[in-house]
Design a protein around this nucleic acid. Sequence first.
DNA 1: ACAAAAGTGTTCTATGTACACCCATGG
DNA 2: CCATGGGTGTACATAGAACACTTTTGT
Lengths: 234, 234
Amino acid sequence: MTALENNSPYIAQPKILVATDCIVFGFDEGILKLLVFRRRIDPLKGEWSLIGSFVNEEESVPDAARRVLLQFTGLENIFLEELRVYSDVERDSGARCISIAQYALIRINDYDREQVELHGAKWFALEDIPQLVLDHNVMIADALDRLRQKTTHKPIGFELLPEKFTIPQLQSLYEAIHQTKLDDRNFRKKLLSFDLLIKLDEKDKSTSKKGAFLYRFDYGKYKKLEESGINFVL
Amino acid sequence: MTALENNSPYIAQPKILVATDCIVFGFDEGILKLLVFRRRIDPLKGEWSLIGSFVNEEESVPDAARRVLLQFTGLENIFLEELRVYSDVERDSGARCISIAQYALIRINDYDREQVELHGAKWFALEDIPQLVLDHNVMIADALDRLRQKTTHKPIGFELLPEKFTIPQLQSLYEAIHQTKLDDRNFRKKLLSFDLLIKLDEKDKSTSKKGAFLYRFDYGKYKKLEESGINFVL
DNA sequence: ACAAAAGTGTTCTATGTACACCCATGG
DNA sequence: CCATGGGTGTACATAGAACACTTTTGT
């Protein structure tokens, strides 16, 4: 995209710094985690911060976020959704800057450990999140609310698990997100009633001697159901 | 807020035009309406458009929206919530410009008719919305989805009605929003079960000889219930 | 043989849904 | 006195919640 032409009718309008900050969720060994890093610019250089970037002239906001996520994790095609805009005039002591927060769900085993370390990033369990710069802790709280809201109405939890997962794994994810203990029988019954999971022949024996069957989420089937107005509630 | 200082670490960063567009809902005589106006700047001057403005350096995004709403309707303290960011690089042919869309719910009898006319604004029934500039028709579709979603989970419908309203009025609002016919008995039963409406001694006789009792929404009670985690579903 | 997690069914309760009649009043 | 919209109650169906035992297998 070009800069403003001299004859643009918008020429007199105030331009503003626009950033995007990513709340990156991961799920590891029953614990919900977030990716944060040491900020590399002043002010507040060296403090913990969400990963983010300024939005460039020639990219959309989601594109900017995807660029950041690729840089920090080496991952593409990950679940990403807008959270909300943070635009208080005083929110950033460096300059007037609007941030569009977005949350991402990643399969925590897939990320590129080198990339993460290279950028000074680190995974924290939800309860161990340190004090972050600016309004980033608020963003996290808001993202968590949204994640809780969203996972009960849309089947996005799968984005945090490997492609092949077991039902107890999925349950433990929901328990971690919602900080509750769920009834195994009811959880399984409800979940399978949607008929959106494909049972595989393999078992995961890493957590028990008996082993738990692995499943895959049927994205194709879900897409169709969604179009015809499914009401998924967990 | 000051402009960037020369020594600001952000000085080299790209600044962008940021606008906000408001999807303004009103409810009149059983019909859901939207406020649009004739755009007054090139390009596309004279075309129908959502009301909106560029965001200034010294105001937050909601502040900008409130400024616009006050200008166009003479109203303050109206329900306003962020919809989402529209940031496609090519979305505005005038210049690269990000828009943060917000939807507002107004009591349609309260607005200042002079202000509205003065600004070339006009109410359209939902089904009569003309072609609007840029991506504004998409914004409306998204806002409508959100309104449908939101009204089933939060008691915000009241924002579209006078402070004193009847239950049949409220029902007709829900029917207009969701484009369905609801059962009167079940609607009333469910609604009153929340115990959030205060029945007044007055009746509204404008729509029937018998007259329907007027109610007020108990905002105070709702606030308390919300904090303790109510689940309002209509 | 036993510990440890996976897997399975039934009963009870609550909530939603369908449905039809009387009420009050102004004209 | 009647037409019009306001207001009420009950029976049925469906979905959610509570709850305990058997299965598998590695050690």
